[in-house]
Design a protein around this nucleic acid. Structure first.
Lengths: 152, 152
DNA sequence: AATTAATTGTTAGTATACTAATTAATAGTA
DNA sequence: TACTATTAATTAGTATACTAACAATTAATT
């Protein structure tokens, strides 16, 4: 479709919605005094739900690049919520492991996270979510098709 | 709706889509050697399309906070693509004005921007866009309703 | 008119996101 | 085996996004 004004494009819509949600969620987290950022919550809850992960697995699940994840993990390790354990097999890899304190912290944080989600998404249906997922897959498909085209 | 895994929530979907689009667009901009970031393009094209704006109007249109916009404008002013002119009426305000170089730059950039958009959104219909806009308005409505509730 | 409140923009500090370059380890190949 | 390529993670540098604190100006109130 044809887009004229820059602030009427789907890209602008999605980015602006994303930022508004982030701002709200971050404010709620800060007011809760839980002392975790959104990304830190993501890391801890993924580790808590699915067990220890290699750093590159975590980057993949969260779709973060390595330098970004490195710094998020640095902060969480400094707060003693997780450890980087050397992998016995491949010594380039680190296994990221939740500590007892990390488990406690994410348990404390979860009710707040659920509260934030229910405020934001109370009236969002699974139909809405499917439409969104479909749009996401189409756009991301366009991105990877473009890369393929350029390779040829 | 009930959300279980953190990477299956609408928030994660939107954020991840937003980041993937940004990454692609920024890469395309960089490869074009146009030497502008996404935000810099936004500022220049808004000024070009709608004429000079006060800094707070620009912040509002782009839904950026003041410190963020200050720094984006700093960089653009350093590159001589715009000027901050003292407002004659209200001396707290600056009128942001595109320079000749700025006009040239955004004219050069527009074909690239249009190319990026058509790659990303070729198969996005106005129906998709309306659904997205509707979702955005509901979620943002939830945010502002929450703030109102807390005030009482 | 004087005081207080609100607005506009900046500066400082922290976290995230990305590129490019680097180090270390592993895999593949001549 | 030695050479090359690939992979995993880090470091350095830049841009964006936010809060908090601040300065300057204007508006509102008494």
């Amino acid at each position: 479709m044809e887009i004229n004004k820059i602030d009427e494009s789907p890209g602008y819509l999605i980015e602006s919605l994303s930022r508004n949600m982030r701002r709200f969620s971050a404010q709620q987290l800060r007011e809760s005094k839980i002392d975790l950022t959104l990304e830190q919550v993501s890391v801890l809850s993924i580790l808590d739900e699915r067990g220890s992960k290699f750093q590159n697995e975590l980057a993949d699940i969260m779709s973060k690049d390595n330098p970004t994840l490195t710094r998020i993990l640095d902060l969480l390790e400094k707060k003693s919520y997780l450890k980087r354990e050397l992998s016995s097999g491949d010594r380039r890899k680190f296994l990221i492991v939740l500590t007892k304190e990390g488990e406690k912290k994410i348990a404390q944080a979860m009710p707040i996270i659920k509260q934030i989600r229910s405020t934001l998404f109370e009236d969002v249906s699974s139909n809405d979510l499917n439409q969104l997922l479909n749009l996401k897959e189409r756009i991301e498909g366009n991105i990877s098709n473009h890369s393929k085209d350029v390779d040829n």
